[in-house]
Amino acid sequence: MTTPLLEVRNLRKRYGGVDAVADVSFDLAAGEMLALIGPNGAGKTTCFNMLSGQLRPDAGSVRLAGRELSGLPPRAIWRLGVGRTFQIAETFGSMTALENVQMALLSREQRLFSLWRRAAAQFSDEAAQLLDAVGMAAQRDRPCAVLAYGDVKRVELAIALANRPRLLLMDEPTAGMGMGERHALMALVRDLARERQLGVLFTEHSMDVVFGYAGRILVLARGRLIAQGDPESVRKDAQVREVYFGSSAGQPA
C-alpha cells in the first residue's frame, strides 16, 4: 500500500474551553485535490495554520512523506516542501511579476542581494518558466499593481511553486474572482497537481469550485470532521445539508 503524502492524525487546537479543531484526521495523496469546507467558524483556517506551522497544535500529528511537521516553524515547513497561497493575494505591487517570483527563488536559495551582481540577473530563466507554467509569460514584465486580480492570483501561485513543493495549501484561492477566472485558475491547479504529483489541500466557499475540482471533500463543523468522501457522497450526506442549509432538504450546488 502506498504511503500517503500527507498524514494528519487527531489534530487538536483548543482556545479556553472551546475546541477550534478537535481530533481531525485525514490523508492526502500525491496528485490529489482535496477540499476542506465548512461554515464560518468551522475551524478551517485554524487547521490550515497548524499544517503550515503558524499555529502549534495542542495535540496530534502532521506528517509529510513520513516526516513529522508538528512543532516546526513555518520557514522549516516551507523548506520541507509545503507551499501556501492566501485568501488575499500577497505580492509586491511595485515589482513586476517576474521580480516577485525571483524574490521567492532567492529566498529558496537563501541568497542575499550582491553589490557585484544585480538581483534582477538571478534566477530570471527559472522565474520565467514558472510564470509560463501558470499562464503569465506574456505579462512577466508588468508590475503586479496593474494586473487584474485573477492574474495576481496566478503570480501568487507561481511564487508558491518556487520552492518546488510536494504539498500546496490554498486558502480560498478563488476569493474575489469572477466565475470564468475561478474555473480557469482551478483547472490550472488541477493540471499542475497531476503533472507534478503535487498534493493540493484547499478551502473554498464557492461550491461550484469545490464540487467541480476536488477529488475528495472534507467537511468541518465546530472543529470536527462530520463527513468526508467523494463529491457525490458528500453532496448526498444529510448532516452536510443540515449544516449548510439548516434542513435536510437542500444540498450544496
Rank of each mutant, 00 (worst) to 15 (best):
R182A: 10
R111E: 15
E195K: 13
L220G: 01
N10H: 09
G199P: 01
P231G: 12
F86V: 00
Q102G: 05
A89W: 05
R196P: 04
G43M: 06
A160D: 04
D125A: 15
G66W: 08
P4G: 15
L161M: 14
L69P: 00
I159T: 11
S52M: 00
F86L: 05
M95A: 15
G93D: 15
V210P: 04
L55Y: 13
D151M: 04
R194T: 12
D19W: 01
R75E: 12
R118G: 15
A127L: 05
A158M: 13
V8T: 06
Q139W: 13
S94G: 07
L112Q: 08
G229D: 07
A227V: 02
S114I: 05
S70P: 00
D23P: 03
R224S: 13
F48T: 06
D171R: 01
S107M: 05
T3S: 15
S233W: 08
W116I: 02
Q110T: 07
Q122L: 14
D27P: 02
M103I: 13
R235H: 10
A89D: 10
Q251L: 13
A249R: 08
M186T: 01
L106I: 06
D171Y: 03
V146S: 15
A249L: 12
L198Q: 09
L34N: 05
E204P: 01
G229Y: 04
A249P: 00
P4V: 14
L64N: 03
E68K: 03
D132S: 14
L11N: 02
E242R: 14
L130G: 09
A20T: 03
V209N: 11
K236H: 09
Q197P: 00
A120M: 03
D141A: 15
W78M: 11
L130Y: 11
A97C: 12
R142H: 15
A137K: 00
G223F: 01
F202Y: 11
T85F: 08
R194P: 01
S70Q: 02
P173Q: 06
A120R: 06
G81M: 05
V152I: 15
V24Y: 09
M50Y: 03
V24D: 09
R222E: 12
S206V: 09
L188F: 07
E156N: 08
R190D: 04
L5G: 04
R108E: 06
G176W: 12
E109P: 00
A148R: 02
P143A: 14
A89F: 06
L168R: 10
Q87I: 11
F123S: 12
Y244C: 11
F92N: 00
M186L: 07
H205Q: 14
G16M: 11
L11P: 00
M207I: 01
Q239R: 09
C144G: 07
A158C: 14
Q110C: 13
A35Y: 09
L161N: 14
M33Q: 03
F211M: 15
L34Y: 01
G81P: 03
D171H: 02
A133C: 10
D58K: 04
A42S: 11
A76Y: 01
G31H: 02
A175C: 07
K13P: 03
A184S: 14
P231Y: 11
A145V: 08
E126K: 05
D151L: 09
E181F: 05
A238G: 02
N40P: 08
T85C: 10
L106N: 02
M170A: 13
A238L: 06
R56S: 06
A89Q: 12
S124G: 09
Y213R: 06
L69M: 02
P73H: 10
M103S: 14
L112A: 12
G212D: 10
